[in-house]
């Protein structure tokens, strides 16, 4: 698409208004840089979507970035972006839990990288690794995984019988 200078100026003004909110919020420079990154990611996401299937269509730039366009404006990609990012995190968590699970299974059979370690040491190693991601849902899933892998439920059931 070829645009002349006045058209480019108009579109940039619309982007300044609709995407950056006229730069009026009191965010720090770091926040703005972060927002800029997400904005670039959103643009790339739309570009990839367009190249994937040529049947897709987005409106012309002066409509796409217009602040009053409720129907198919650029702001709507935010929801889309959030969905994509949460999906990425979920998949990452699934892979991490799979790894943890296989490590416990191998440890039970005296195989693998951590066969020399005790159960407590292996637990500490995994805990340290997963704490690096700072994700509460990952932590909870890890607890459940531990219950399953280490048969902690069976232990609990045995305890009352032992006490009698």
């Amino acid at each position: 698409m070829i645009l002349s200078e006045p058209e480019v100026r108009e579109i940039l003004n619309l982007i300044w208004e609709s995407v950056y909110g006229k730069l009026q919020s009191n965010a720090t420079e770091k926040d703005w840089l972060k927002y800029q990154d997400t904005a670039f990611n959103r643009v790339n996401m739309v570009a990839r979507w367009l190249t994937r299937s040529p049947g897709h269509w987005i409106p012309k730039p002066h409509i796409y970035f217009h602040p009053n366009n409720e129907r198919n404006r650029f702001k709507k990609t935010w929801q889309w972006y959030v969905k994509q990012e949460t999906l990425k995190i979920e998949i990452r968590n699934q892979l991490l839990l799979q790894q943890v699970k296989s490590e416990w299974q191998q440890h039970e059979q005296n195989k693998g990288r951590f066969r020399e370690k005790t159960r407590l040491q292996l637990f500490r190693i995994q805990q340290k690794r997963l704490a690096g991601y700072r994700d509460e849902s990952l932590n909870q899933a890890y607890q459940q995984c531990l219950q399953r892998c280490l048969h902690l439920k069976n232990l609990k059931r045995k305890q009352p019988a032992y006490a009698q």
């Binding site: 002349s4 006045p6 058209e7 100026r9 108009e10 579109i11 002066h62």
Partner: peptide
């Protein structure tokens, strides 16, 4: 007046 509108 909006020059870009006129061009469009």
């Amino acid at each position: 007046p909006n020059q870009a509108l006129g061009i469009r």
